[in-house]
Design a binder for these strands. Sequence first.
RNA 1: UGGCCUAUGGUGUAAUUGGUAACACAGCUGAUUUUGGUUCAGUCGUUCAAGGUUCGAGUCCUUGUAGGCCAACCA
Length: 561
Amino acid sequence: MEEEVKSLNFIEHIIEEDLSQGYSQEELRFRFPPEPNGYLHIGHASSICLNFGLGLKYNAPVNLRFDDTNPAKEEKEYVEAIKRDVEWLGYRWDSERYASDYFQQLYDWAVELIKMGKAYVDSQTSEEIAEQKGTPTEPGEESPYRSRSVEENLRLFEGMKNGEFEEGAHVLRAKIDMKSSNMLMRDPIMYRVLHKAHHRTNTDWCIYPMYDWTHGESDYIEQVSHSLCTLEFLPHRELYDWFLDQLVSEKKLRPKQREFARRNLSHTVVSKRKLLQLVESGVVSGWDDPRMPTISGLRRRGYTPESIRNFADTIGIAKRDNVVDVSLLEFHVREHLNKIAPRVMGVLNPLKVVITNYEEGKEEWLDAENNPEDDSAGNRKVPFSRELYIEQEDFREEANRKFFRLKLGGEVRLKNGYIIKAESCTKDEDGNVTEVQCTYDPKSKSGSGTEESLRKVKGTLHWVSIPHAIEAEVRLYDRLFTDATPDGYKDKDFMEFVNPASLNKVTGYLEPSLKNAKIGDRFQFQRLGYFNVDLDSTDEKMVFNRTVTLRDTWAKIEQKN
RNA sequence: UGGCCUAUGGUGUAAUUGGUAACACAGCUGAUUUUGGUUCAGUCGUUCAAGGUUCGAGUCCUUGUAGGCCAACCA
């Protein structure tokens, strides 16, 4: 066996470097740290695959840590949704942690910082503080409260904790450098007063630590070796390190933050605000609408965890801006579904075909292969009768020889069935074909081994027997946005690019074997695409989603003309 | 007017750390095919620019250009 040499991404290079410079493999530990204020999306999937993938590669534990320091935005519902999504992707965390587990420790450390003269209580308004902060090009000025005594700071900070003050009355700030070229180092806020119940600590606390004061210290508590985040946190690294400098013990591992560029997917948006806007404006039906780039949306759409993991693996991780084309994601679902999805037949745009020389009232149950890609998939029976549906696009009265499908006087193979010939057709007053009359060759039955059955005809069509067909709602999805980068324009709102035709509900006529399909089951409707049973499906009315179409070279040929 | 990050085919990512620019997708040809699917074979096309160091530069240096990030009591 030839070993495939897998190249390393820059994060793995860093880890390999650390390993060769004295880190032991046992010290490696990672974490995935979502804030439970929304649903996970395809961008998070990349981060999840990165962190958990590293865990698998180095046999290192990975924590799932909820960054729950802002009770105004966070809810238990999101915690549950996030856990479900990470599990669905196929990963197991070593331990489930919450930044809120560390509130007491963080408070104690903050007191230490005050005692060291490295933190102070500021009693200005947020406007005043913002004013003094300066701009990226101008230095800030120091707060008049910056030189409060340790005793007063201690007393005020305790008062904050004990609920003696209104929101906004005081904040705790780190005393660093108001002239730093890094805005984050200009005496960043560590704590604010928030009289809000937290989804886990309830009303135990009325002061809450800020992200910067929480994240690195949480990494330190959990002894995370490599704390990976997106590039916009790069300026935070200096502060991350400064906070760690104040309390790291030499005997313990010191976490390091490293940053990678978030992955952008074309034809969609991923910011929580924009996703929420799509939900609230009714453009989509909810966070798990199959058109949404959320993990729950992709799951409902019929994507497999494997396909998402392979996608994440293929696009890799780097530091430059990027927009990954959705077609790559689609490639990965097709690749996986091609291997696992049973083939069935269903007609979405029906045109009636009558086999005039087929006995009325007769039915035959034909053998059909479940999956040519999987020898163990076996066979099933599909009913054949005198009256069938084929797709409207599969018949033309006349066409050139590039058109392999049914035309008057022409022959075509009905998949798993007989070779038929179109003899005539009837039309309505508008000239639309409403029925095609065909004859069949009784000796051409698929698999019968006769000379006639072995005849080569250019086209093969899927079909369904009208009296046996089951009706179902089929939801056909297109891209949610008509532009590759809907939120990439300064002068245009992303909502302007919403694709008005992103959802098309049709009635499908499906082979009867589908009657037993369960919610979530995935199929290939032959020649049409991959579909799964939607959770709106009931015993009375089945509902299918089209996950993705098949590759369609015919459509490309058509487009050129 | 500041600081920091990034620049490799249409897209995404590599390049044994200075030694033949490659992989996947997309595109295009063709073969196979009872799915215009799959599979197979082939093909197209790349180091932001200008200097410099070097036997040799995608990689190092300088300058420039372009894009991004940084002024929430958000994360």
